[in-house]
């Protein structure tokens, strides 16, 4: 029997260059509709992973800081108990999953998410006809009136389990995830290895090693949400000299 996984991610802020490749990768992998200008202006754009930019310092010594934010798959997720229909719940692999069929669109989960990573389908999604063949057949297209969010590309995790654990009967190790390209699309696309994906239950994996770094922290730790995503602090040589 395969051992229990607990999927997690490490985001090394020090490496992030704010290139938005992860955003595009996520968009095409997960059938997220194309955001137009009007969507951004009305604050209804859907980006399962977004890159928040902060300015640090005073002119002329201004630095841009980037922080990719996506669903933190909290072990103690505030969005879960407030859903009346169990549309969002915690599965046994540490994932915070969204069941589209159950969702009735109360949007309470979005209100109670401190990370602002839940998105509501205000209208039915649409693509230009030329992109219809681009849609990912493994991912449901969400209709209007329901919530959606980052799934850690659960379709890829399932494929890995099916191929490696199911067909070959082998253990799904860190290396095999990397070799088989089973990481979430954003991790795949990241040119600087900012994002690292893996099994937090596997003591040898890179995620566990990195998450134990002394630079490691979690967003809004004081809220006690216990996220599965670890962030590594920016290494700032200038800050030391101060």
């Amino acid at each position: 029997m395969a051992k229990q996984h607990k999927w997690g991610m490490v985001v090394d802020i020090d490496r992030c260059i704010g290139c938005q490749a992860c955003v595009i990768a996520c968009q095409s992998e997960n059938n997220v509709p194309i955001n137009e200008e009007v969507d951004f202006l009305s604050r209804r754009a859907k980006q399962w992973i977004r890159i928040d930019r902060f300015w640090e310092g005073e002119y002329p010594n201004v630095k841009a800081r980037f922080i990719p934010v996506f669903c933190q798959h909290c072990d103690n997720a505030p969005c879960e108990p407030v859903c009346p229909t169990y549309a969002t719940y915690h599965n046994d692999q540490g994932l915070n999953v969204q069941v589209y069929n159950r969702c009735v669109g109360t949007r309470y989960c979005a209100n109670n998410c401190p990370y602002q990573v839940r998105f509501f389908n205000f209208f039915n999604p649409s693509w230009p006809e030329s992109l219809w063949n681009q849609l990912n057949p493994d991912v449901t297209v969400r209709s209007r009136g329901i919530m959606e969010k980052c799934t850690f590309c659960v379709q890829r995790i399932r494929r890995a389990e099916r191929l490696i654990e199911g067909q070959k009967g082998e253990e799904l190790t860190d290396q095999k995830i990397k070799d088989g390209n089973f990481m979430p699309a954003c991790v795949n696309a990241c040119p600087t290895d900012t994002l690292v994906f893996g099994d937090l239950n596997d003591e040898t994996s890179e995620v566990v090693r990195k998450s134990k770094s002394d630079r490691s922290y979690r967003l809004f730790a004081e809220l006690g949400t216990e996220p599965s995503v670890f962030y590594l602090k920016k290494v700032d040589p200038a800050a030391k000299s101060h």
Binding site: P81, V82, C83, P84, T85, Y86, R102, C103, V104, G105, T106, R107, Y108, F120, N121, R144, G145, I146, M147
Partner: peptide, 27 residues
């Protein structure tokens, strides 16, 4: 709500009765 037709169904009859999934009373 986003899908009122679903919500009516869920308020009037317990949701997904056949599969034993009930409303989450924590909510």
């Amino acid at each position: 709500s986003g899908r009122p037709w679903r919500l009516v169904y869920w308020v009037m009859f317990p949701y997904d009765f056949q599969r034993g999934i009930w409303m989450d009373i924590r909510s």
